[in-house]
């Protein structure tokens, strides 16, 4: 009997663990999508749609072999966000995306996790470029991309997120 095998690695940074989604993360994810914090990524939305979104994120690993990770705060074990690499239908190219949940902002977590995810894209997956697609009014997220060295590289009208800015990250050579 043949089997399809999917591996979801765990990454570790100074303060965070990046790991696969579990059912236990649902409350934190539903809380984010119920809140105004999700307004730049298609929310706020019902728990039903949040479940579909969370499942979609996990399914991305199955269908494409890469995806986003849950961010777990080492100090507390809490689920504080979702960061990683994805390329869902409707995106112009492969993306480095990051969401932080209530109470997790202002600590540099997005930059810390996204830097690890970008290194995984370049060093493990062999990507030569990656963008972050960010709603044009999402100043906090644009600031994270800028801090990571990304630069504006055009705009893209996203079906659900509205007008977005393409922030292109430095290439692997540009980082070294």
């Amino acid at each position: 009997m043949t089997t399809t095998t999917i591996h979801i690695p765990t990454l570790e940074t100074e303060r965070l663990i990046l790991r696969a989604h579990t059912l236990a993360d649902f409350d934190a994810i539903a809380g984010f999508y119920a809140s105004d914090r999700s307004k730049f990524v298609g929310g706020p939305m019902s728990a039903e749609l949040a479940w579909r979104n969370m499942s979609q994120e996990a399914g991305h690993w199955v269908l494409q072999g890469f995806g986003r990770w849950i961010l777990e705060e080492k100090a507390t074990g809490k689920t504080v966000g979702m960061v990683g690499l994805w390329y869902p239908a409707g995106f112009p190219e492969r993306e480095l995306g990051y969401d932080l949940y209530e109470g997790a902002t202002g600590k540099g977590y997005a930059t810390e996790a996204a830097t690890a995810a970008r290194a995984y894209a370049y060093d493990v997956l062999g990507w030569t470029t990656v963008i972050s697609l960010i709603a044009k009014d999402n100043a906090a997220s644009i600031a994270v991309a800028t801090r990571m060295g990304a630069k504006a590289d055009g705009t893209f009208p996203h079906e659900r997120f509205g007008e977005t800015i393409i922030m292109r990250h430095p290439s692997p050579e540009g980082l070294s």
Binding site: R52, N53, S55, G59, L63, P88, E159, R160
Partner: peptide, 18 residues
């Protein structure tokens, strides 16, 4: 179509959780 696209990926995700 967009919702169906998300649903398809969501179906695949159940294997990860369960």
């Amino acid at each position: 179509r967009a919702a169906a696209q998300v649903s398809f990926s969501a179906i695949a995700g159940m294997w990860v959780f369960r």
